[in-house]
Design a binder for these strands. Structure first.
Length: 272
DNA sequence: AGCTTCGCCTGCTTGC
DNA sequence: TGCAAGCAGGCGAAGC
């Protein structure tokens, strides 16, 4: 489940091998992976990659000639791997896109569940076009507070809403709320008083996770195919029935907004 | 408009 | 052991 730290790790691994490379061919073999409004993938042919940046949970590729940008979202099980020409991955399943570059390098996209997407289009106002809000490092405290004020939805649902705040997914929302001592079902407006600490905890968790190369629960891999290690440092996510690292209480799992939600009933009290 | 639920998709896990 | 149901979840669409 690539969230901000995983995507950031992928992006860091892509920069060096991709920058300055020219696109020789661009093939997207699963047309349903186009996000609505995208221009066709092959228009990228002949263009030279300038920069690779993270945009929320998505990846943005800009080209030297300006014009259209390429946006790739990994969905849940997407892998973007840099491969040499004669890679031994050739038999791997679920290969849906290949960007062939000069120097015998290929950027290959694998995605078993196909929840990811590709989008080619104008780079201006990308947030508006793709419905992606500021990420936790960009948003300022007053803006963050404003986002929660007057909201009745559970804080967890609000933090998962990419239009409001981009980058967080199920793992890091649960981890952030645990660290901030906030029950995931707390209405947004009730959590608004704790926004300063919450934003601080979100940033801390994300920074630590980036340092660990992200969390590899199952499918996630970095651009060189390696795994992250932050899964070993998770405090509530995936720890249902185990003891809380802080107080010894048993970590519980509930379903909130259709998502498996992990929390410590002792450290994260008071939902209403 | 805000909020919730559903469906997409496939592989692994669970239960009979 | 084998098979079907259950589960995982990012995100857009639909429904309330």
């Amino acid at each position: 489940m690539p969230e901000l730290p995983e995507v950031e790790s992928v992006v860091r691994g892509l920069r060096s091998p991709l920058s300055g490379k020219t696109v020789k061919s661009a093939k997207l073999s699963a047309p349903d992976l186009y996000r609505t409004g995208s221009r066709p993938f092959p228009v990228l042919k002949g263009r030279k990659i300038a920069t690779v940046e993270r945009f929320g949970k998505a990846i943005r590729v800009d080209f030297e000639s300006g014009g259209d940008v390429l946006v790739i979202h990994l969905g849940m099980t997407g892998n973007l791997i840099v491969e040499k020409k004669n890679s031994r991955n050739s038999g791997r399943k679920h290969r849906h896109a290949v960007l062939s570059l000069d120097g015998g390098i290929r950027l290959v996209y694998y995605d078993a569940r196909r929840f990811g997407y590709f989008w080619v289009g104008p780079g201006e106002d990308l947030g508006g076009r793709l419905n992606i809000g500021p990420d936790p490092f960009q948003i300022r405290l007053p803006e963050f507070r404003e986002m929660l004020m007057g909201r009745t939805a559970p804080i967890k649902s609000l933090l998962l809403n990419q239009k409001l705040l981009s980058g967080l997914g199920n793992i890091y929302v649960d981890e952030s709320l645990f660290r901030a001592g906030i029950h995931p079902a707390t209405p947004g407006r009730s959590a608004a008083a704790k926004t300063r600490d919450l934003l601080r905890q979100i940033r801390t968790v994300l920074r630590n996770a980036i340092r660990s190369g992200g969390s590899t629960i199952r499918d996630y891999r970095r651009a060189d195919g390696s795994r992250g290690s932050f899964q070993n440092r998770l405090m509530v996510y995936g720890r249902t029935g185990q003891t809380c690292v802080s107080c010894g209480e048993v970590v519980q799992r509930i379903v909130l907004g259709g998502r498996g939600t992990h929390f410590c009933p002792s450290c994260q009290r008071g939902s209403e």
